[in-house]
Design a protein around this nucleic acid. Structure first.
Lengths: 228, 228
DNA sequence: TAATCGTATTTCCTATAGGATTCACGATTG
DNA sequence: CAATCGTGAATCCTATAGGAAATACGATTA
């Protein structure tokens, strides 16, 4: 008897989670353009679910800043960043991430070093083309590097703050729309941070992170000026 | 004709917003105890609405950390902070708020000084009893002080990060459950920050904020040790 | 032609119904 | 007495229906 073992537990998942992931992916990779209306009923039709889980997914998405809600009017994809906001986003990272680096480095483990080293390897081996499909691996490796450091800082509140920024970062990067323009420099800067980790030098890790983010900031501004 | 002008627009508001506010208030003032189950249907019955807006309100609340969700199981009020988490929360504030103070002070205006001065006045004039009703005004004044500084830092991303922490702070403070034990010291420390603002001394404002938060941290830990 | 009006569609919002699962609790059985 | 089983309630989750307002759009009229 019991021809099929309890497979059902695997199938059983909450639709709102699925919708949330789907929307998040669409926002990050640009399938949903800035300013686009996010019709609840429309999304429900597209994904073949009812509006209820869509409402829940959108409510969760609101705090990320990627989606804006106006009561009784609906949701829209947040507008593109201006050059000022873009710089502010990096400034916010400059507040949080150097501390992350310092803390994570202070409790360094060989496993962490190995993880970070792997992300830099991935960065090197990933293509850097101009379309999302091409540089998605590059981005993932870059995001992994920063996220792993944040996760090892040991402060869940700071981690939460970083994660909120993280989504923004990814979205911004897509809309910069240039593909990867600074792979060599970024790899170099990540390596400098990793070296400080390997040496067990928290202050050095902090400074290397500051230098990296300042580099990101300047290159971002430069790119956004050259390609308005 | 048109016997009643468009009054309806005032009545028209989204139930989810109302539920959200109601839950937030209950969480902050402790009517909802840590670990309590947040039954969607139950809340809907209590507030005499349908479960749909309740789901939306809870989804919005999740990212604050005050509420935890387990798929297919429901929502619970997040557990109380441990002493370690409590210290971590202040550490997170120590990352963000000194920068806020420095930035806000760098673009100081007489209006901002007046606003801050007012919150300190409110702090002085508020009762400091042991029940929520008594020290709610004190809290509000304290929270206003920090929030106003965050709002004047001029970086919406950092402000967002601060706000997320802010809710946590308030909840923690209630659950410390002692009323206000450090009014004099807190007023003194706020005044020191204000003085630096008045003097147009960003570095001084930053340092005064650091000193204040360190004081908050130490007093919090002391209180939580004395009243486990 | 230009403006206004009316209809039809869309959209948000809320309530309700029902399926699936879990939980509580009492009854039954060894 | 202890353990197991079964029933009913509670709960989460999703779909559907329908009200209210906004929007689109075409027809009518000055």
């Amino acid at each position: 008897m019991s021809p099929t073992p309890p497979r059902r537990a695997l199938n059983r998942q909450v639709l709102a989670d699925h919708v949330h992931e789907e929307l998040m992916a669409s926002l990050i990779d640009g399938r949903l353009e800035a300013g686009a209306n996010l019709s609840i009923d429309g999304i429900a039709r597209d994904l073949e679910v009812s509006p209820t889980p869509v409402r829940e997914a959108l409510a969760r998405l609101e705090h990320t800043g990627m989606v804006r809600r106006v009561a009784l009017k609906g949701y829209k994809v947040a507008p593109l960043f201006t050059a000022v906001e873009l710089a502010q986003l990096v400034d916010a990272r400059l507040v949080i991430e150097p501390v992350n680096a310092e803390l994570a480095c202070a409790s360094i483990t060989p496993a962490l070093v190995a993880e970070l080293k792997q992300t830099i390897e991935d960065l090197r081996s990933s293509p850097t083309g101009a379309s999302y499909a091409e540089f998605r691996d590059y981005w993932k490796a870059d995001e992994d590097f920063h996220r792993i450091i944040a996760e090892h800082a040991g402060n869940p509140f700071i981690l939460n703050a970083y994660k909120t920024l993280g989504g923004q970062v990814q979205r911004f990067r897509f809309f910069a729309g240039l593909g990867v323009t600074d792979a060599d420099t970024a790899i170099q800067e990540h390596t400098a941070i990793l070296d400080a980790f390997s040496a067990g030098d928290p202050a050095g890790a902090r400074d290397a992170m500051i230098a990296h983010l300042n580099g990101v900031k300047q290159r971002s501004i430069r790119d956004s000026v050259e390609h308005p």
